[in-house]
Amino acid sequence: MSDLDGTARDSWQDPDSAIIRQLSEDDDVSRLHERLAAAAQSAGVLDVAYDTVDTPVGTLLLATTEEGLVRVAYPIQGHDAVLAQLASDISPRILHAPEQLREPTRQLDEYFAGRRRQFDLQLDNRLSPGFRRSVLSQLPGIGYGSTVSYGELAAMAGNPKAARAVGTACGANPLPVVVPCHRVVRSDGSAGGYAGGPEAKEALLKLEGAA
């Protein structure tokens, strides 16, 4: 009796395994996948759509819900780990669906080409609870090419003594680049840490002419 393992055997000797191999010839399912993503979107069962975009600071993962962009992640954050986290935090109904990320991708391309100074996107802030959200909500107010210190941002968020909590909130920013936590730096002028790595932060500040 031949079995799946039998496909490794010489097909001339074993017609069964040759038959199985022919019936198993893989079609490319990428076109079917694309169709599935579109059907899932129109049926309202695609809870999280994602895509990746190549940028000067690495390949960014972008994820969106019906409400808006929900996650941007750097390679060093581990795209698979981030998707697994989205599956548990939001929904496991996650598909690679580039069509749903066209606008954020376009705006990011423009930003990295130096042709966009602010993002005009619907955001889904559900991953930032409480104080974190109030901190992050201040960030779009820091203009392109400007920086503030952690302490200043704490004051902007209504709690001048909360510089450390502000640092934590920035580090946990689920929407880096788009929500510009890279514009928050140390009071001595050094860039400070960044979820995408210090080099990425320096690169963004340089792009904006702030470093």
Partner: peptide
């Protein structure tokens, strides 16, 4: 600012 402040602490959200 004169305030002492930490860096971003990279964590997942």
């Amino acid at each position: 600012s004169n305030r002492m402040e930490p860096s971003h602490i990279p964590t997942t959200p």
